[in-house]
Nucleic acid binder design. Structure first.
Lengths: 108, 108
DNA sequence: AACCTTTATCGTAATATTACGATATAAGTA
DNA sequence: TACTTATATCGTAATATTACGATAAAGGTT
């Protein structure tokens, strides 16, 4: 079907999965690494960083924006993309909660 | 195309994206939360935890296994799934590296 | 206004994902 | 051996994702 069921899951589970899904492509990892390091936030520079066409990169940026991890500001003729620190910190916290919830002894 | 390009990315970027992608579904989040808390690792108990059919859950388990986050041991008539702590810790480290690489000041 | 630059969107094709029921497989039990 | 239980795999349908070129839209420049 391709359609992910959301009923029967908590909002938090659905939200965390959505964030993880957004991180689930090498191009979007590169974009976030690039923005985190603040070398630039101009869209054109991001495109140059990637082995993908401009339209494809624009699509990836849109996904990251939709999930809230980045935001874009129009800056004259170009667009400046930045990490949304709120969403970023929340994602970090939720992920580290998941990874930290392990209780020592594994049974196999 | 649906086919993710991997050329032009580092191995680490591709690997991290693969892990994130595996986390990118609510059912797989639930499975990992459940296994991390060690209430049980029997496949049947995981199926009961989810609002999905047995075959669909089996598919999700397979994905988590393929990416290495969990491993399965046959235990008599049933199968015991557990988190692979090596992969788990590596994933945690790589993700916290990504989230920690932010350099204070955002430009927008 | 005409033009260039920058980014987003559209249209499209190929492939992947999600989900289910049905069936196969494997292990234990009567 | 026949039967039940537990899990995996197959087949299939619907939808999503990825990628590209072409084009639109928005802003600056001459």
């Amino acid at each position: 079907m391709g359609l992910t069921k959301t009923t029967g899951f908590t909002k938090e589970q659905v939200a965390l999965a959505a964030i993880a899904k957004a991180l689930g492509h090498p191009a979007r990892i590169v974009i976030l690494q690039f923005l985190a390091k603040q070398k630039s936030c101009v869209c054109g520079d991001i495109v140059e960083e990637l082995p993908l066409s401009q339209s494809t990169v624009s699509q990836h940026l849109k996904e990251l924006k939709t999930v809230g991890l980045i935001k874009g500001n129009i800056e004259g003729p170009s667009v400046c993309y930045c990490i949304d620190e709120n969403a970023w910190n929340k994602a970090q916290q939720n992920l580290s909660e998941l990874f930290g919830s392990i209780t020592g002894d594994s049974c196999c």
